[in-house]
């Protein structure tokens, strides 16, 4: 199971707690959408490389 965690904004404590549990013992990657000029090609590549994507607020 490969997880991809995507963040639309800086993750808060609740999100960090949930991500830690979801990623436990799994391969995990992340992508920050809240930076300047996110590379959408890279994000799409990551989505298709992952088994499951969660895009947090």
């Amino acid at each position: 199971m490969k997880m991809l965690q995507v963040y639309r904004s800086e993750p808060n404590d609740d999100v960090k707690t949930l991500v830690d549990i979801l990623n436990r013992d799994r391969e995990a990657d992340e992508f920050k959408l809240y930076g300047e000029n996110p590379n959408y090609d890279e994000l799409v590549s990551k989505i298709f490389a992952a088994d499951k994507t969660v895009c947090w607020w």
């Binding site: 996110p38 959408y40 090609d41 994000l43 799409v44 590549s45 298709f48």
Partner: peptide, 10 residues
């Protein structure tokens, strides 16, 4: 829009 366009490019 960014993700939809990137998906099509891919």
């Amino acid at each position: 829009v960014g993700i939809a366009e990137a998906a099509v490019r891919a």
